[in-house]
């Protein structure tokens, strides 16, 4: 019993179908609990007031935006090395989800930045990096759409994903070099401060636990969406294959 058995399209569908509703339910529950806890049961930040509470959407979305790309990278590598179709389709399925998370991250960042920094948009390195990540998602999806042969499309997008990952990383450091930015001391830095050291003041845990619940909720949501979308992609391919077979048989008779 190896993990690669789940790379069989049929096995993938029969395994994931019963658990998808449960994952969706768990995701919804986590996000609802996390947001309610965060919005109504935690105190306002002494500097940022109630605006800090957008952190419960902003940080999980931003984390998943990056994680989705990493998942696509791993899935692309699996496709290139082991040629499992489900892997390529999962990478394809994850791209729009990751793109939407990136958009949510950018949008909530703008909404948060307006009262904090006095501007909707600043060419802050982290914001800029996310904008570039968004462009990478667009290009990746456009390439999938443009190439007709599904296997060629999978190969080409996998290569693009690998090269893109390197350049996304480069862009990130180039951005930091280019502009030192406003983000210091805000979102991720705060989370790192919270998670990093037990010596941090206890009060930050008040923000941290609901945030953790929200992050778990977003992860589950991502997994459920990717499962569902991968199933759709598999069914599209299966339909294509069946139609092609029917046409061949008709032509032969």
């Amino acid at each position: 019993m190896s993990i690669w058995e789940y790379a069989n399209p049929k096995k993938f569908i029969t395994t994931t179908t019963p658990i998808i509703p449960w994952i969706f339910g768990a995701a919804g529950l986590c996000i609802a609990v996390g947001l309610f806890w965060g919005f109504f049961l935690t105190p306002d930040d002494f500097r940022q007031g109630s605006t800090v509470k957008i952190i419960y959407l902003h940080v999980p979305a931003a984390m998943m935006a990056i994680s989705a790309w990493l998942m696509m990278l791993v899935a692309s590598l699996i496709w290139l090395i082991r040629r499992h179709h489900v892997s390529a389709l999962a990478a394809r399925a994850a791209a729009p989800v990751g793109m939407v998370f990136t958009l949510i991250g950018l949008w909530t960042g703008a909404v948060w930045g307006q009262p904090m920094w006095g501007t909707w948009w600043a060419w802050d390195p982290r914001l800029t990096s996310f904008l570039i990540l968004f462009l990478f998602y667009l290009g990746y999806m456009a390439l999938w759409e443009a190439v007709e042969d599904p296997d060629s499309a999978a190969d080409l997008t996998s290569v693009l994903c690998m090269v893109g990952s390197v350049f996304a990383l480069l862009s990130r450091y180039a951005n930091h070099f280019w502009n030192q930015g406003l983000h210091q001391g805000s979102s991720i830095a705060r989370v790192e401060a919270v998670t990093g050291a037990d010596t941090q003041e206890r009060v930050s845990n008040v923000f941290f636990y609901p945030l953790l619940v929200c992050i778990v909720g977003f992860v589950l949501l991502f997994v459920a969406l990717v499962f569902l979308r991968t199933q759709t992609e598999i069914r599209v391919r299966r339909t294509r294959a069946l139609v092609a077979r029917a046409r061949r048989e008709a032509g032969h008779a």
């Binding site: 399209p9 179709h85 599904p150 296997d151 391919r237 299966r238 294959a241 092609a244």
Partner: peptide
């Protein structure tokens, strides 16, 4: 049918 085989 090539790679479509995997989906039948």
């Amino acid at each position: 049918g090539g790679s479509d085989e995997a989906f039948l």
